[in-house]
Amino acid sequence: MKSLLIGIAKRVVNNFGFDVVRIRDNFNISQYKFLFTKDELERKPFYNIGAGSFYHPYWTNIDYVSEWYGDLQKNVIHHDLMSKSPLPIGKNKAEIIYTSHVIEHIKEDAVQVLFDEAYRCLKEGGVFRVTAPDAENNFRALINNDENWFYWNRNYAAKGSYESIYHRPANSVPLSERWLHTLASQLAPNDISPSKIKLSDKEIWKAIDKFGFPDVLNYLCGLCHFQNDRPGNHISWWTREKLFKFLTNAGFKNVYQSGFGQSHSPLMRNSKLFDSTHSQVSIYVEAVR
């Protein structure tokens, strides 16, 4: 009945030459205004590290500005996490710090500095949310020969879709090489990144047999280095246990596993803006200052 009355009202108004449009608050502005004062919101105390194309009027975007990302980045403050320099945020000034699918692109020592900085910058009770590819599940998918797990490779199969990253369609090479690309991109033979070391299917399995999990991940990522012109490469690996260790080392006492859309902060439960990158293969961890 309600929808019927709304439809009738809409037609009546339209007869007078007006369009009725439902305005959706995709930014959850009302929720921000309920939780924070106007002065607090004007300071934009919510920080997205590695923001890419993310935009929210109350958030501050920090990212590594590079031609690699083209015109994707929006309103970002440039910061090189590999420099291991302080984040451009004052001490105890941040309400929330969010970083999604960023830490796998930098080396472990730089990740520890990032986590240390997050602890420094957050206010008491502030939330730090981290998402990254789940290295354990990715490895299990390889062992189980689960080709479907690596579903994103299909996005780089057609001509014109893969040439900036791969020599050949992403799904045209052995599964071990596709797995390697998610872990240590520059070592994958199909990746066009320059590297003195490229490991074949046979060599990958030999390394797995020799080192086992997770030591093989340390071995392979240890062969990688950060390439300034290809910041999108993966060069480090992460599991829940490893994230807990690094966050605890940074000083966080309250560290816990989260899930898709399950943030402690209601502001980060908006899946239109958060947790939208490869949720199937991601781990979600939070820490409260």
Rank of each mutant, 00 (worst) to 15 (best):
C224G: 07
Q262Y: 07
A158F: 13
G90D: 07
Y284L: 02
K242F: 01
S100P: 02
L5I: 15
F150W: 10
I23D: 03
Q112M: 04
N14G: 11
F150H: 04
Q262H: 06
K2N: 13
N92F: 14
P169Y: 02
L4H: 11
S53V: 03
F54K: 04
S172F: 06
G222W: 08
V65D: 13
L35T: 01
H167S: 12
W149K: 03
F115P: 00
I208T: 07
N218A: 15
S263M: 04
V102N: 06
Y166N: 05
A132G: 08
K33D: 01
Y219N: 12
G17H: 12
T182Q: 13
F115A: 05
A287V: 07
E177A: 04
G125P: 06
G259R: 03
T131L: 10
G50K: 12
Y55L: 12
S176G: 08
D191E: 08
E95A: 04
F139N: 00
R269D: 06
E136L: 08
N190I: 03
Y98W: 12
V127N: 08
S263Y: 04
L5E: 15
K123I: 06
F16C: 01
L217K: 03
D275F: 10
F27T: 09
E117Y: 00
E163C: 00
I204E: 12
A188M: 09
H167L: 12
V111Y: 00
P86V: 03
I143R: 11
M82L: 10
S30N: 11
G126E: 08
E241L: 11
G17S: 12
K159Y: 11
K159R: 11
E40V: 13
A94K: 00
